[in-house]
Nucleic acid binder design. Structure first.
Length: 416
RNA sequence: GUGGGCGUAGCUCAGCUGGUAGAGCACUCGGUUGUGGUCCGAGAUGUCGCGGGUUCGAGCCCCGUCGCUCACCCCA
C-alpha cells in the first residue's frame, strides 16, 4: 500500500516552502505593523459555532464542513474560516472588556470539503486580522490598508481591490423587498430560484450569461444605503484615497459568509483563473451578539496564503530565503570530519546558519553540495588545516578566498 | 455535487496501426590525488496510478477505481 496525501490538500516542500513562508511572514509583518496581536486558536470547534456564525444557509455550512463526532459524543467541525473562532475566544475570555478595539491576527490551516480546483484546496492556509469593538471608518481603512500593504510588500501588482458597502440592517431590508419583487419576475430554473429564496444577493454573483443579463437591471443595494451607512462608506473610500490605495467599486460584490454588513471588500488577482480572490473581508455588525457576546461591531479580513503564493509565482516574483546558510563546511577524512563537526556545532551556537558535508563524498561532489545549499561561504577542512589551524574561506558567488585561522571564523562571518 | 482533460524514471515529457520502455533535466562517479557553477565520458533509476477484462501478446483497446487538473457551483 502506497500512501498518498488526502484528496485536495495543499502541502509545501523544499523548493516552494520558502516562498510560502515568505508570503506568510510578509503578511504577518503587515499585521504587526498596525499593532495586531497573535491569537493562536484551535483548528476545531463546536459545530454550532460555525452554523450560527457563518450562517445556517450558506454553502460553507450546508455542504462543505468537515464535521465529526468526538469520543464524548460532541459534534466537532474543522474550522472552515477564522472569524467565528476568534469571536468565540474574545467572548469566552472577555477580551472585549478592556479598551476597544481588540486587534488580533491569526494564521493556520482551514478546511472545506469542496471539489479541489486551481487555488482551491480542502486544507488551505489563511492569515487574517480582526478589529473588534468599534464601528469606526478609520478602522475599516486600516484593515484594508494592512492587507494591501502585505500584498504590495510582496511585490504583487496584478491585483485589484474591489469594495462596496452592504449597509446596515434597515438598508438591506429595504433593498431586499424590491429585489425579491424583481427576482420574482425573472425567468429562472428551479435551483436558481431556490438559491435566490435563501439569499437573493447571490444572483449578483452568478456567472451564467442568462442570469447576468437579467440581473444587470436589478436594484442595487448600494442605492438603498441609509444616510449613516453612506457617510461611513464614503469616509472609508476617502481614507483609502488619502492612503493612495486604489480600488474599484463593485456594487454587485457578494460574499459567501452571511455575517457581512457595511464595508465589504475582496482582493482579486488577474492571473489566477476561476479562483481569483486572494483575500477578502468586511464588517460584521451582528456576529458577536449572534454568538452570545456583547452587541459589538467588528471588521476583519482573511487572506488566502495558497493563492497569494500562486499569484506571486504567476507574476514571476522572486521569493528569497532571508535565513539561508552563512557557511558550508567540507571535511576531508575522518579526523578532519570530527574537527569540522565541532566547528560547525560551535558556529551554530554562536547563531550562524551552518551546514556541512556528510558521508564520504569526493571534494568535487561536496563542493557541488555547498553550491546547492545556497551558502554564502564554503570552507574545506583537511589534514593540513587541522594541524595548522590555517584555513581559507571561499566566497561562493565571487570565488574569492579569504585566509584566516579557525578561531577567527566567527568574527569573519560577523563582519558580513 | 456536475462536466471536460490527464496519470510512463525524482522532475518535464516522448513512446507509430497492440510486439514487452526512452529522452532531457536532476542524481552518482570519473576526466582534473584538495575547491562548485561550463564542457566531455560513464553509471544508477520504473510494480507505465491501482484492479479487472479482451488478446498468443496491453504503456497503448474496454470497464471500474483512486488521484491530479480545468470549469460549473462556491470561495481564500
Amino acid at each position: 500500500m502506497k500512501f498518498q496525501a488526502p484528496k485536495g490538500v495543499s502541502e509545501y516542500l523544499p523548493g516552494r516552502s520558502v516562498g510560502f513562508d515568505h508570503v506568510r511572514n510578509t503578511l504577518t509583518a503587515a499585521a504587526l505593523s498596525a499593532g495586531y496581536q497573535l491569537a493562536e486558536l484551535p483548528v476545531f470547534e463546536d459545530t454550532e459555532l460555525f452554523a450560527r456564525g457563518v450562517g445556517e444557509t450558506t454553502d460553507v455550512v450546508t455542504k462543505e464542513m468537515y464535521t465529526f463526532e468526538d469520543r464524548g459524543g460532541r459534534s466537532i467541525t474543522l474550522r472552515p474560516e477564522g472569524t467565528a473562532g476568534v469571536m468565540r475566544a474574545v467572548i469566552e475570555h472577555g477580551l472585549d472588556r478592556g479598551q476597544l478595539p481588540v486587534k488580533l491576527w491569526y494564521t493556520g490551516a482551514f478546511f472545506r470539503a469542496e471539489r479541489p480546483q486551481a487555488g482551491r484546496y480542502r486544507q488551505f492556509y489563511q492569515l487574517g486580522v480582526e478589529a473588534i469593538g468599534l464601528n469606526d471608518p478609520e478602522i475599516d481603512a486600516e484593515v484594508i490598508a494592512v492587507a494591501d500593504r502585505g500584498l504590495k510588500t510582496l511585490g504583487l501588482k496584478d491585483y485589484r481591490l474591489e469594495i462596496t458597502s452592504l449597509g446596515d440592517a434597515p438598508s438591506r431590508l429595504a433593498h431586499r423587498v424590491d429585489l425579491d419583487v424583481f427576482i420574482s419576475k425573472m425567468d429562472l430554473d428551479d435551483a436558481t430560484r431556490a438559491k435566490a429564496a435563501v439569499n437573493p444577493l447571490r444572483l449578483f454573483d452568478d456567472k451564467r450569461e442568462v442570469v447576468k443579463s437579467q440581473m444587470s437591471q436589478a436594484p442595487l443595494l448600494i442605492d438603498y444605503l441609509s444616510e449613516e451607512s453612506q457617510l461611513h462608506f464614503s469616509r472609508v473610500t476617502s481614507l483609502l484615497d488619502s492612503y493612495g490605495i486604489e480600488y474599484v467599486r463593485n456594487t454587485s460584490l457578494v460574499r459567501g459568509l452571511d455575517y457581512y454588513t457595511g464595508t465589504t471588500f475582496e482582493f482579486v488577482h488577474e492571473k489566477l483563473g476561476a479562483q481569483s480572490a486572494i483575500g477578502g473581508g468586511g464588517r460584521y455588525d451582528g456576529l458577536m451578539r449572534q454568538l452570545g457576546g456583547a452587541d459589538l461591531s467588528g471588521i476583519g479580513f482573511g487572506m488566502g496564503l495558497d493563492r497569494i503564493l500562486l499569484a506571486c509565482e504567476a507574476e514571476g516574483l522572486e521569493l528569497l530565503d532571508p535565513d539561508g546558510l552563512d557557511l558550508f563546511v567540507i571535511a576531508l577524512g575522518s579526523e578532519a570530519k570530527f574537527v569540522a563537526a565541532g566547528l560547525v556545532n560551535s558556529l551554530r551556537n554562536d547563531g550562524f546558519n551552518v551546514d556541512m558535508s556528510y558521508g564520504d563524498r569526493a571534494l568535487k561532489g561536496a563542493m557541488k553540495a555547498a553550491d546547492k545549499s545556497g551558502a554564502r561561504f564554503s570552507l574545506v577542512v583537511g589534514e593540513d588545516e587541522v594541524t595548522s589551524g590555517q584555513i581559507s574561506i571561499k566566497e561562493m558567488e565571487t570565488g574569492e578566498s579569504h585566509a584566516m585561522t579557525i578561531s577567527t571564523i566567527a568574527d569573519f562571518l560577523d563582519s558580513f
